[in-house]
Amino acid sequence: MAGYIVRRILQAVPVFLGTTFLIYFMVFAMPGDPIIALFGDKTPNPAVVAQLRERYHLDQPFIVQYFIFLGGIFRGDLGVSFSGQPVAEILAKTFPVTLRLAALAIFFEMVAGITVGLISGLRKGKLFDSSALLVSLVLISLPIFVIAFVFQLVFGVQLGWFRTTVGFGAPIQDLIMPALVLATISFAQISRLTRSSVIDTSGQDFVRTAASKGLSRRRIVPVHILRNSLIPVVTYLAVDFGTLMVGATITEGIFNVPGVGRTLYQAIIRGEGPTVVSFVTVMVLIYLVVNILVDLFYAVLDPRIRYAK
């Protein structure tokens, strides 16, 4: 097991280097001079421009810049944004917000998706199953901003249950609505995945054997059907969590959530190379870690993987 983890981490190294290099290169290749852009309509003082360029190493060749950046990463220094704020500080402010939003969204989609999927799977072809299929198809077909606006209108404006946008400090109650919006997309996936997995497992020989032992339906469903069916679902959930953690740009934008997605979007618009690169680097790291965790979690769920040599 330990060997497996080490191998996975070693595999992550080239992925990390490759992606950061690619990101750095793309940001570098973006048209326009970000330093000039900082001054807007004003004509900049050449001395100030030169000083800024030196400060952000923009006067060095590309590859040197990359290694300076890499060196910083390994020293735990993520650099400074053009506005003079350390990137680490921006991250520290935005990540907890996104983490809360992602956790809420995962919670909603997990509870709703698995429940609906399980009932659909156990009652294949009945009214509940068909209705769930219809709802899932509608949700999958709708673009997320449409769902977001409908939610804002119905729950925010007409019913007045939630504030339409997230207020200062991003309190949990304000995050519920964007989390629900985020959850709708994956809800459809998870309920369909759970459904087919439950149908699959229900037909397995060991389920019949469990019944032949005299077990009640109430025990067979959670212990022998649901537990086995959840293996692919949990994998999907974990990957989805990774995706949500790196920010939901559109939803965060619509609900004005001060999270990773919105901050990154703004940094890209402003051409803030250091912020973009550092943000994306952290995202890549998170994604890699989540993926390794998914694999390990898989082993927890399935003993065949746990004990395989």
């Binding site: 020989d205 060991f206 054997t209 212990v223 537990r227 086995n228 399935d302």
Partner: peptide
């Protein structure tokens, strides 16, 4: 091969 649940001891 198929009549024991693979995830339980």
């Amino acid at each position: 091969m198929s009549n024991l649940n693979p995830v339980w001891s």
